[in-house]
């Protein structure tokens, strides 16, 4: 078998310095194959967000190796990481993080704008992405005019509008009620199955983790357990 899409080798991450230093990750090893749907679980403070931020190239590890398609990400500089983010990754946050006073369509177009796509391409792609998350009718509404579930779907549309290899979602359902949460999960499953996007998702709700085919448990900055989930829908 060829190399995995993502490979973490003995990754550590320390916050703060001296007395206040806190080791959030203490040597994480993890391999993720293309097309997987992985849920990351674990108690609060166990380092889930930290590892997601590292995978999303939003942060850099203290030590260890991070290989993305064989590229040593830990050796990339700030701009190269931004370019990798731009080309291959989509990120969804617990807090949605949409631009205020900006229509859903413009929010979704933003990553394409930074890629320098012409206006027609941007409009078409943004509308297509919004249609995929079921918000074609809501393209001209601003976040303030959308419900939490709708905002998170706009955020997902923004993450997938660039056709990323990997979608990283840090507690995407953390701010939503259970019905909206299930809708979001079904959307993620669909993206994973129909588009072949690799999905990595943090959650502490077992109900949501059940949608994933693999569940990785974090405890105290280490991978504690890595299991298959037989209940999940099979791949493709």
């Amino acid at each position: 078998m060829s190399q995995p899409l993502i490979e973490l080798r003995a990754i550590t991450k320390t916050y703060g310095q001296g007395q206040a230093a806190f080791q959030a990750l203490r040597g994480v090893d993890l391999q993720i194959e293309a097309g997987e749907f992985v849920a990351v679980m674990g108690p609060s403070g166990s380092g889930k967000s930290t590892v997601m931020n590292l995978l999303g190239c939003l942060d850099t590890p203290g030590s260890g190796e991070y290989l993305f398609q064989g590229i040593h990400v830990e050796q990339l500089d700030r701009n190269q990481r931004a370019l990798l983010r731009r080309q291959c990754l989509g990120f969804v946050f617990q807090g949605f993080n949409l631009l205020a006073r900006t229509s859903a369509q413009e929010n979704v177009e933003l990553p394409l704008l930074y890629r320098g796509e012409p206006a027609e391409v941007r409009h078409a792609a943004a509308l297509a992405a919004l249609a995929k998350v079921g918000l074609a009718e809501w393209a001209h509404h601003t976040p303030a005019e959308l419900s939490g579930g709708q905002q998170q779907r706009v955020a997902i549309a923004r993450a997938i509008v660039t056709n990323p290899l990997v979608l990283l979602a840090d507690e995407p359902t953390g701010n939503l009620d259970s019905q909206r949460s299930h809708e979001i999960m079904e959307l993620l499953v669909r993206l994973n199955q129909e588009q072949g996007i690799t999905v990595l998702m943090v959650t502490h709700e077992p109900d949501m983790a059940r949608y994933a085919r693999r569940i990785v448990h974090f405890v105290d900055g280490l991978v504690h357990r890595d299991e298959r989930n037989p209940e999940a829908a099979p791949c493709c």
Partner: peptide
């Protein structure tokens, strides 16, 4: 700015 950087804007 954080949002823009996170979705791939360069500094």
């Amino acid at each position: 700015i954080g949002i823009r950087l996170a979705i791939g804007a360069l500094e």
